[in-house]
Simulated assay, not measured.
Amino acid sequence: MKLVAVSAGLSSPSSTRLLADRLAEATRAGLDGDVEVRVVELRDLAVDIANNMVTGFPSAALREVIDAVTEADGIIAVTPVFTASYSGLFKSFFDVIENTALTGKPVLIAATGGTARHSLVLEHALRPMFAYLRAIVAPTAVYAASEDWGGSGDAITDTLPSRIERAGRDLAGLMSGLSGTAKRGEDEVVPFAEQLAALRKS
Rank of each mutant, 00 (worst) to 15 (best):
V137T: 13
D95N: 05
S11Y: 07
N52P: 05
D154I: 00
D21W: 03
K2T: 14
G33K: 00
Q195C: 09
A172H: 08
T55Q: 09
S92F: 04
R17F: 10
G168N: 05
D158G: 03
V39P: 02
S92L: 04
G9K: 01
T115D: 14
F94S: 06
K91I: 00
Y86S: 08
A101V: 09
L19P: 09
R184A: 15
L18D: 15
A5V: 09
T70P: 01
A24R: 06
G177N: 11
V54A: 14
A110G: 14
P80N: 00
T112N: 09
V142Y: 01
M175I: 14
L108P: 07
I97W: 02
R22Q: 15
T157Q: 15
V35W: 07
P106K: 02
D154Q: 03
L199C: 06
M53R: 12
D48L: 01
E186Y: 11
E36V: 05
V137L: 03
E71V: 03
V142N: 02
I75H: 02
S7D: 09
A29P: 01
G74L: 00
R166I: 02
T115Y: 10
K91A: 04
A125D: 15
E165A: 15
D48E: 13
G113E: 03
L42P: 10
E36W: 04
T157N: 13
K183N: 11
L174F: 14
G30N: 07
H124V: 13
F93T: 00
V81H: 05
G56Q: 04
S92T: 03
P161L: 08
A110K: 01
E25W: 01
T103V: 08
I164M: 14
S162V: 14
M129R: 00
A84H: 12
A110T: 08
D154A: 04
L102Q: 01
F90K: 03
V137H: 03
E147M: 12
G185Y: 05
I49F: 04
V4I: 13
P139C: 06
K201P: 07
I97A: 01
A144W: 00
P128Y: 09
E98L: 05
G9H: 07
L133F: 02
E165S: 15
P128D: 07
L18Q: 15
V35I: 13
L108F: 10
F192W: 11
R134K: 15
S11D: 13
V39C: 12
